[in-house]
Each structure stands twice: as structure tokens, then as C-alpha cells.
Amino acid sequence: MTAPMKPGQRVLFALRKMIVSGEIPDGARIAEIATAERFGVSRMPVRTALRTLEQEGLVAKLGRRGYAARGVTPAQIDDAIEVRGVLEGLAVRLIASRPIAPGFARKLKAVLAEGDALFAGDGFAPEHVDRFYSYNLAFHDLLLDASGNRAIGVALARNNHLPLASAAALALDWDDLANAREHLKAAHEEHLAVADAMLSGRADDAEQRMRRHARAALNPGVMPLVGPV
């Protein structure tokens, strides 16, 4: 039985979407108590979500007055995600350019099996988003570790502080989970394609597929959140 989504995750995904879409305008104060009441949670999940958003550059701390939203432009998101694609593309190129270690292949197939199981049925509820979040991070972290290049990890960690740059930065509309399912399923299918290219030793193909996977987040059909520049 799937565990329910952690309250902090749901608040984080929702606030991220609201800030990026402009529903919470640039400079607007985000009050912990009011936000907790809105989402039916305690103040702690809200506080945790706001700290994460501060690291991503989507909110600014106002001292003891809490946090305020920081507006973000499509160009800022484009730039950050493009850099992520280049770095992760290099990681998979390095993996595909070397003999594939049996241990890595087993781990990769086990992680991908989690994604297969997640999308095996037609239903999709908040707990499925939580499962995708964990699966997605496991996939990206495994590739980074297997690349053997620590500099890529350092560069990605820095880039992850930019808005929506991290693989963990999901921004979802909780009122349209059917649409969210289609987009997350497409991401899983891209994972499968990247894995196939890596395991087959197609380094160029693996790199290009990984870069396209990152850029897919810029597609208006995938992230229709940001207004015109």
C-alpha cells in the first residue's frame, strides 16, 4: 500500500507552481499561518517548504516577518534548465562511453522498474506524485554517481539553487492530476530511452536524449506556468 504524500511535499509543489505562475505575485508576503490554514497542515510543513523555495531563489526571507515571493521570468528558467541538460548530458555520455558495470545496470533496471509500476494502472492520486518524486530523484542521482565525475555534481548542486533547475523541482496543478500523470509518464518514458542508449553504448544518443529530457520542462504543454517575459 502506498504511503500518503508528506504534507510538506504537497505544500512545496503547490507554492512553487503558484509563485512561478504569478498567482502569488512578486514581492507578496507568504504568511505561515494563513498558508498552513489554506492547505490544512501545521506550520512546520509550510516552514520546510519555504526554506526549500528560498534555496531555489523563489522566495526571499524578510527577517522575522517570514518570506516574500520572488518573481521569475521564462528566460531565467530556460537558462537554468539548459545548464542542467548540458551537465546531465555529459554524465550519461561518460557512462555510455565506458563498459557498463553489471552492478550499475542492475540498479538502473531496478529504479526504472519502479517507474514502470507507477504508471502500470490508470489511476493517479497525490501519493503517486510522491512516488514519482522519489523515483525521479533516484534515477537522476544514480546517473550522477555512476558518471564518476565529481565536478558535475558540484556544478549541478550550484545550478540547483536557480528557479526550477533541480530534477526535484516539481510544480503541479493539484486540480488536474490526470494531466500531471501524462506529463510525468512522458518523463518516465524519456528515462527509459536514455537508459537504453546508455546500456547500448550509444554515447552521442544518450547525451542528446538527456539534454532533450531536461528541455522538455520548457515545453509550454509540460509547464504552462510562466507568463510572457
Results as ranks from 00 to 15, higher is better:
156 L>Y: 08
2 T>G: 12
220 P>M: 15
168 A>W: 05
71 G>A: 07
99 P>H: 13
71 G>K: 04
98 R>S: 13
109 K>I: 11
55 Q>V: 09
174 W>C: 06
144 L>Y: 01
211 R>V: 02
173 D>W: 01
158 R>H: 15
139 F>R: 01
153 G>A: 11
52 T>L: 14
92 V>R: 00
76 Q>E: 13
91 A>Y: 02
30 I>W: 00
104 F>W: 14
65 R>G: 15
229 V>S: 10
212 R>F: 07
71 G>C: 06
58 L>Y: 00
4 P>F: 11
6 K>I: 12
42 S>G: 15
93 R>K: 15
64 R>L: 15
59 V>R: 00
148 G>M: 04
12 L>T: 01
85 G>D: 02
151 A>D: 11
227 G>D: 07
6 K>R: 15
61 K>P: 04
72 V>D: 00
105 A>R: 09
26 D>K: 14
48 T>V: 10
201 G>T: 11
139 F>D: 01
84 R>P: 01
100 I>M: 09
81 I>V: 13
83 V>R: 02
171 A>T: 07
126 P>G: 05
193 A>Y: 10
147 S>P: 03
202 R>M: 15
61 K>M: 08
188 H>F: 10
51 R>K: 14
212 R>E: 13
145 D>F: 10
117 A>W: 14
80 A>I: 01
148 G>K: 03
214 A>Q: 02
198 M>A: 06
206 A>Y: 00
3 A>T: 15
148 G>D: 08
220 P>H: 14
170 L>F: 07
